[in-house]
């Protein structure tokens, strides 16, 4: 599996660290209420299909990436810097 890092170019999977679903980019407001925080901290989708995830280019540029990946085919359909995905 290869990931096309927006900074470094296409690189082998072993250079990256996998963080998990990209929920960290949608942190609720402090007063969003118990339900929103419960969902943010504990509840995760488990899709058979497209999912957005955070990967860290640990051995490369040190950039945090949002990778859109299909969990069935492992096809990667999009990679962007987390700092840009947020704004």
């Amino acid at each position: 599996m290869r990931i096309n890092c927006p900074v470094c170019g296409e690189r082998d999977r072993r250079e990256f660290y996998y963080k998990g679903a990209a929920v960290a980019l949608e942190r609720p407001a402090p007063d969003a209420g118990e339900a929103a925080w419960d969902e943010y901290v504990h509840l995760r989708e488990n899709p058979a299909g497209e999912t957005r995830e955070l990967w860290y280019h640990e051995s490369g540029c040190n950039g945090w990436l949002v990778v859109t990946r299909n969990t069935v085919s492992h096809e990667i359909s999009g990679v962007e810097l987390a700092s840009e995905a947020r704004s």
């Binding site: 470094c8 690189r11 082998d12 072993r14 250079e15 640990e58 051995s59 490369g60 540029c61």
Partner: peptide, 11 residues
């Protein structure tokens, strides 16, 4: 120049 892995080391 690249930042990459050399075996299991950041290089």
């Amino acid at each position: 120049t690249v930042r990459t892995d050399l075996m299991h080391m950041m290089a």
